[in-house]
Structure formats: structure tokens, C-alpha cells
Design a protein around this nucleic acid. Sequence first.
DNA 1: AGCGAAATTTGAATCGATACAAGAAAAATG
DNA 2: CATTTTTCTTGTATCGATTCAAATTTCGCT
Lengths: 359, 359
Amino acid sequence: MASLIEGQARPIRLADIAKAAGVSHGTASNVFSRPEIVRAEVRERVKAMAEKMGYAGPDPKGRLLRAGKVNAIGVATTEPLSYFFDDPFARVMMAGISQACDATGAGIALVSAANQEKLAWNVQSALVDGFVLFCIEGGSRLVDLTRERKLPFVALELGFDDETVSAIGVDNVAGARLAARHLADLGHRRFAVLSLAFADGRTGFATPEIVRSARYTGTRDRLAGYFEELSRFGIDTARIPVYETENEETSTKAGLEAIFAAGEPPTAILAMSDRMALVAIDWLKAQGLSAPGDVSIVGFDGVPDGALCTPPLTTVAQPITEIGRRAARMILDHDGAVRRETMGVELVVRGSSGPARKG
Amino acid sequence: MASLIEGQARPIRLADIAKAAGVSHGTASNVFSRPEIVRAEVRERVKAMAEKMGYAGPDPKGRLLRAGKVNAIGVATTEPLSYFFDDPFARVMMAGISQACDATGAGIALVSAANQEKLAWNVQSALVDGFVLFCIEGGSRLVDLTRERKLPFVALELGFDDETVSAIGVDNVAGARLAARHLADLGHRRFAVLSLAFADGRTGFATPEIVRSARYTGTRDRLAGYFEELSRFGIDTARIPVYETENEETSTKAGLEAIFAAGEPPTAILAMSDRMALVAIDWLKAQGLSAPGDVSIVGFDGVPDGALCTPPLTTVAQPITEIGRRAARMILDHDGAVRRETMGVELVVRGSSGPARKG
DNA sequence: AGCGAAATTTGAATCGATACAAGAAAAATG
DNA sequence: CATTTTTCTTGTATCGATTCAAATTTCGCT
């Protein structure tokens, strides 16, 4: 059976009601966008006609072309869209972005795609005034793609050396040092590192070679911070296993297995993300090991979940919400300048780290 | 100081590079949208010119007007945007919506506003092909506003009698009965209800009068389900306090205080949302009462947080993700028909409910 | 009634692309 | 070399509004 929609040939345009009401395009437009400059009588006549003809109001598609501004910012990632709602880090970040958008009445467009072609298309065709980029796996490609749009954009997590792109991130070296010092102070001497990616698509133990040629400087900086600090305690960092994961469960578990399979197990794990740290806590429990009894763990990020798990996670907390707010504001009040901001971090000591076992 | 942006008079258009490359609009357009039909030589010439002039590629604003389809669905609420990332129920729902969008490559536009005028404007000007409406507080206004756009939309939570709007919800009566029976079976006889709103902007104990004239039929149905079932156990439902909250912390605590201040305290609380149930658990702990020792609690929704808290929450679980997926698909493959779907619910018994204390 | 000022209304131009019928050029065929 | 095909290219119309200078109407006042 034919639906109501199919009945009407095509949607009513502003021009249609203008003609029907016997006024010009311009006046009809004014009735909706600046009603105060139209004579009351005419205004009512046009409105009545619009009502009668079932006019849906000025179509934003038309307005947009004329006005040029969408009043929305795009948030893009190479992950699927559900990442924004599943990942705790992303959620907190989005909350910050939301706050800034709420304050100015701007909207948020979520942009993503599983595969490369679609990502390109989605970034190219997103109706936004600028982008906030979640630079995780594949971040550099995303930056290149976005640059093409010639719209303002901010990369989150400062993962790039490239000084020409605006970015907000944290002091990775300082944060990593905080974590390392905390564990060293507790007497730990045997460490392992669960690392984020140094380059796209890698997984497994990272060689010094890989570290040196890291594309993601954030990862490199965190490792550098760990090592610098541990060196000061006389620890031979060359012997510390560094396992690169994809920051999710499977590869993190693989990393833990590899780390604990090889020789003398660590008494402390430095994880470059809370996500990996939380997986590690679960994994240890499953192995019959206790945290912090047998192994201490310190994460990085400061996601809320870390406070809720058992034991609660010691971590290097980033001001995630504030980063999100600032990123959104950078787009919203964009002035053409490239800005690179570095935020401070804070060590939050909770239950997952404790004194090293004697012996 | 003048920025680079101010330097160039205005962004380069497709027409500009067409002229510069000595081809027509049409050909230039084809170079980008259907490169295969343009002779290789010409194609390269145009592309080179585009590159040289710093053309950002076809502007989606222009394309949109011509094409008509945005390829994005709007998700709207009367709450601030951060609601989508803060509220556990919303998050799970959004995950479902995201999955459907990922599958078809569609984008998601988040629409909201704190105040009424902005809400109207944001709904009117959202660049989307349809809406999914989170009908919470103020949902009916949102529906009215959205209807004006004459775009397909789906109301979540079936909160309306209005049979002309597409909606997806759950069988509230059946779900409520499940919860009530569970507690009655455990021997409870003194109940209290933490209720969602019956109408906008109300808070406090609900009179039969208020219940009768409920605008939100979802709330009414849940209450009816509770009462029907409890009646079968010979419980006088007229004596059960029903406190209407705004489904957040403050008013829920106020409700608990009011309930426990009045006469004989309940041994079981029926909460119409997990959110309220979780607040109740915390509140009881703070009062030195234990759940389920002193008071049993059963929630409604089945958000993941409920499984994690202490004690874990017994609740009536909705298939939230599936609802989200279906809602998004309704918009994505819209066919003009009004659809109203009712999903089943499931009682998930966890630690927050236990046998009633003797005496 | 007549005149200038103020308030409205008009209509063409513009925003930036895509679609398509028709024309032109190149390639294939006799 | 003429003719038919095939492959490209062109130019115009269209998508749906907003803007703004110019034209017109209304109004207040003498």
C-alpha cells in the first residue's frame, strides 16, 4: 500500500509557499528567519499558508550552503563508532568535548569507518566546521586525510612530531617518570612494560630499533620516561621486556603470557594505558597471582573504571575532560593559528601497587 | 597579525579550478566524483591544477544540497550532550545505534540543548536523514518538535500513547510484574516504589490522581505491573508509597528520605530504573542499612554498571543494545510506515535482593 | 493633498556542487 | 576518405535557501 510520503510528489519548498501566498522569495524567507521585519498581516498569511501546505520549515541543507557554517564539530577516529561509547577513555574525553559544545550550542558529528575507503569518504563528506581527531591506531593516516579538508582540526594525544598540526596532549615523559619512580620507591627492581604501538600494525616485543624509529612519539616518550627514571635507580633498562599491544584485550593478554613465559617474572608492570592495566589485573587473577601482592601494576590515563575495579588501579591520571573541553574550544573559536598544548599529569596511588616482595 | 587563512580571499571552488584548467564545470566535477569517465590526460591536468591551487576537494555543503541525503542519523535528547557519554543506559543504547550505523557507513549527529529555544533550533537545523529520540524528561515536546521536520523518527522507550509515532520499547507491565513477583516470592510484604516521572517537571509522592493522568505511559505501565502482581499476593497496594524522581541522584535521595521517614520502613524497594536503584544502594549503605540484609532492591533497565556494584543489582534487563540497533535501522531503511515494536525483558537476579527478614 | 522619512517588499545574485541532454572529438569501420 | 560508433566534454538547469540594494508602500505632518 502506498504510504503517505509517496503520495506527495516532492517536499514543499519555501518558493512554493511564497508563490502560493503571493509574496516574493525574500519575504517568505524573512517570515522564518527574521519575522520582525515583516508586516504582521503578511507574516500571518505566509505562516498560515506554510501550515496549510505542510511546509517543514526552511530546509537546513539550503540554509547551510548559503550560510557556510554548520555549527557542529566532527569527532573522528579510525575505530568503529561504538568506540566512542565503549572505550572509557573516549567516553571521558567526549564528555569534555560535549561540555564545550553545550556551552556554545554546537552539535557533534561522530565520524568513523571500519575500512580505509569509507574513512576517507566519511572524513571528506562530514558536515562539520572542524575536527577533533582521536589519534589511536592509524592516527597518522587520519591526520593526512583530515588535512585535505582544509578545515581546522586538533589531534588528541599529541602523538606526532609534526609541529604543523594543532594538538593537545600530556607530558608523557613526566608522567611515565612518576609511575616508574613510584614503583622503584616501593622497592621493585624487575619490571615489564605493556606498551602502546610505536608504529601502525605492530605487536610483540619491541626492539631498540623499533623504539628508535617510532612514529608515535607519545609511546616513545612514555618509554623514555620509564627508562630514564629506572636508570636513576641503577636498573638495567636494556633487560626490561617491552611488549607492544593494540591496547585491547587479546594482544595485551598475549603480551602478558609472553612476558611471564620468559625467565624471571617481573614484580611490577608499567602499562601505558589503564585499559591494558585493567586487563593485566584480570589476567593475573586468572593466573592465581595477586596484585599488588605478587605483582604491582601502574596504569596510565586515569579512566574512572580504574577507581572501581579490585584492586583499584594506581595510575598516571591525565586531565581527560579538560583536554576534551580545550580541544572542542580550539575548533569552536578557531583563529587560524596552530596550537600545541601540553597538560600536566598526576600520579594517583590506589591499591594495585605495593611494596616489592622481599627476595 | 594576519593569519594565513585571512591571506587567501576565499576558499577555492570547483569552478575556479575548472576555469584554471580550461575545462567545464561538469568535467571538473566528474574528475572527482566519477574519474573513470574522464580522459586520463584531462583528469591529470585537472587534478594537478587542483593540487596546485590548494583545492580541498568537492565541498560537501554543495554536494549535499544536490544529493539531498546526508547519510547520518540524528540522535536527540532534551538533556545536555554529555548525557550520551555519562548515562549508562544512554551509552549502551548508543552502542547499539553505532553498530547499525557502522554497518551501513552512516554517521551520527548528536543533537541537544539545555534550554527550549536552542533545542528547537538544533532540531530544526540538524543535518540528518532522520532522528532517534531519547524520550526522557520533556520527551513529548521533543516529539512535537521533531515531527515538524517531516523526517522519519523513532521514539525510544515507547513512552507515548500516540500511535502515530514510530517507537521501540519494552513490555513494561510484564517487566514490572517480574520484579514484583520476585520480591514477593522472597517473602517481602512492605514495599516502596522509586518511580520515573508521570508527567514533566514533577517530583514527590504520586497520588492516584497523578498516576491516572500520567502522560508517560511507560511509567504508568510499570507501576501497574508492580501493583497487579503485588495484589495477587494479597498486598494492599494503596499503602505503598510511590515517589516520583527525576531519575538522578538528588531527587532519588530525597525520595528515599521521604520514604524512610514515614512510618514503617519498606523491606523492599522497586526502582523503575537502575540509576535510581544504584543510588538507593549507596544511600542505604550510608544509612548503615544493608542490601539485601535490611532492604532488597530490584532495578529496571539492565545497565552494565549494575553487575559491577556491591552488591550487584537484581534488575529487569531490557535488550538495550538491540533496541538501539533496531531504532537506527528503522531510520536507515525507512519505508514511510509507522512501526511500534515491543521487546521482551528478562529478570536478572543478582545480589541486591534476598529473603525478607522475619518479623 | 503633498512631501519626505520610515517601513516593507521585491527580485536578482549567490552559496558549491551534480545531472543530463546535446554537441564535439576521437576512434573504428567500410 | 566518408561514415558510423564510441568516448568525452560542454552548458544549462537544479538543489533550497539567504542577502542586499533598489523599488515600493505606508505613515506622519504641514
